[in-house]
Amino acid sequence: MSAQTWSIAELAAEYDVTLRTIRFYEDRGLLTPERRGTVRVYHPRDRVRLALILRGKRLGFSLDEIAKIVDMYDAEPGEEGQLEYLLDQIAHRRAELEQRRRDIEETLQDLAEVEARCQADLTALRSRQRASS
């Protein structure tokens, strides 16, 4: 019994990406479909790798980082090393995002302060204009 396979169009539809996106990942060496003439045949390994690539992109990892993570599964140090590396990358990514959140909160606070001062200045200006009219 042979394993299930998918065409490029089937994978694109399933993961809501373009054919060009899948071909790009193939060009980068992230996917390695079987070739039957001019037809690409994707196996379960390709399907899993595509899911991992897309998840990595959603989490903000670069394609180089994603490639390193998914390639580690098949090479030394294997799954354990892959998981350790991924945990390290998650910690770094989380720290970056937490810093961005702090920066955004600080910026929002600064904007609120400037807005309040502008509103107060505008109110005072309009009061003076009414008083002088």
Rank of each mutant, 00 (worst) to 15 (best):
L59V: 05
H43D: 04
Q129V: 00
R130Y: 09
Q119V: 14
T38P: 02
S127C: 02
T18Q: 10
A116P: 09
V39C: 00
E65G: 01
R55G: 03
G81F: 05
R36N: 07
R94D: 05
G81L: 11
T32R: 13
I22P: 06
P77I: 08
K68F: 00
E113F: 03
R49V: 02
Q109D: 07
R128M: 00
G78L: 12
A116M: 10
A51C: 11
L87I: 14
P77R: 08
R126L: 11
I53L: 06
L63N: 03
S127H: 06
R28H: 05
M72W: 13
D71P: 01
G78S: 12
Y42V: 11
S62C: 06
S7F: 09
L111H: 07
K68Q: 10
M1Y: 14
G37S: 06
A13F: 02
E65H: 00
L30Y: 00
E105R: 14
A75N: 10
P44C: 05
D74Q: 07
L108M: 12
L125T: 04
F24N: 11
E34V: 11
R23V: 04
R23E: 04
V114W: 10
T32D: 10
R126C: 01
A131M: 04
A67M: 01
Q89H: 06
F61D: 01
Q89E: 02
R93T: 09
A13N: 13
V41F: 07
E96T: 11
A131G: 01
R28C: 02
Y42W: 00
M1K: 12
L125F: 13
Y85F: 13
L87D: 15
V114G: 04
A51L: 11
L83E: 15
R36A: 07
Q129P: 00
G37V: 05
Q129M: 07
T5R: 07
L108A: 07
R40V: 03
L50P: 07
L30W: 03
L11E: 04
E14L: 14
L59Y: 14
R28K: 14
Q89M: 12
G56H: 03
G78R: 12
E80H: 14
Q119A: 15
A13R: 15
Q82K: 15
R47H: 13
R117Y: 13
V41Y: 03
T5F: 05
D16K: 15
Q4Y: 05
I53D: 02
Q109H: 12
R49E: 00
E79K: 13
A51Y: 08
A95G: 09
E98I: 10
I66T: 04
R93P: 02
A120N: 08
E65K: 02
R58F: 14
L19W: 06
G81Y: 01
L125K: 06
A12K: 08
M1P: 13
E26V: 00
T21R: 04
R28V: 01
E84A: 15
Q119G: 08
L63M: 10
I69W: 11
S7I: 03
C118D: 09
L52T: 03
L83I: 15
I69E: 02
I22K: 01
H92M: 09
K57T: 08
V39G: 01
V114K: 09
Y42P: 07
C118Y: 14
K68V: 06
K68S: 05
R93K: 12
R117V: 08
I90N: 05
Y42G: 06
